[in-house]
Nucleic acid binder design. Structure first.
Lengths: 83, 83
DNA sequence: TTTCATTTGTCCGTATGTATT
DNA sequence: AAATACATACGGACAAATGAA
């Protein structure tokens, strides 16, 4: 289990991304499940919008999630797999 | 030749990224050449630091460039090719 | 060693636009 | 129309890395 520590030398956005990555891997967030929104992450971890944003961007860049504008960011699934 | 138009519906960071992408492709910026710094892009296109930043991030994400912290962002070359 | 300038890294706050429900 | 959620962009601040003087 990974915990968030705002005083760690590891950047906040990487810590939070690691936590979500872990939950995707263990099935807490299964494929096609919507991940916490930017606003939700902001509230939960006390970070700025831009920081929460970067968390989701990171996961999308890694191919672990995809974004539907106006909808949310979801765990990657077979229907959205990218080549 | 692509020009930058701040009033275009195409986001500024994408327009500028397209310009740099073009210059990488045509050899204006050859492999291992340092790309314009964030500050340089800011001055040249009149955009905010974060916007200029996103331009370089985009090219790095695409594998067209790589960053050396404290040094600059360079055009991808054989020595830095990623698998 | 120290200092300085340059450049990237992270983070905050705010504003506005676009898309979907 | 309203609520939710992402997209873009501005501004500012401070830290860390590097290289040069």
């Amino acid at each position: 289990m990974t915990a968030f520590d705002p005083d760690s030398s590891t950047p906040a956005y990487r810590q939070i991304a690691a936590i979500l990555r872990e939950r995707i891997a263990d099935g807490t967030y299964p494929p096609a499940r919507m991940l916490p929104s930017i606003e939700r992450l902001r509230q939960e971890y006390g970070v700025a919008r831009n920081t929460a944003r970067k968390v989701l961007d990171t996961l999308v860049d890694e191919g672990l999630a995809y974004t539907e504008p106006g909808m949310g960011t979801y765990v990657m699934d077979a229907e959205h797999e990218r080549g």
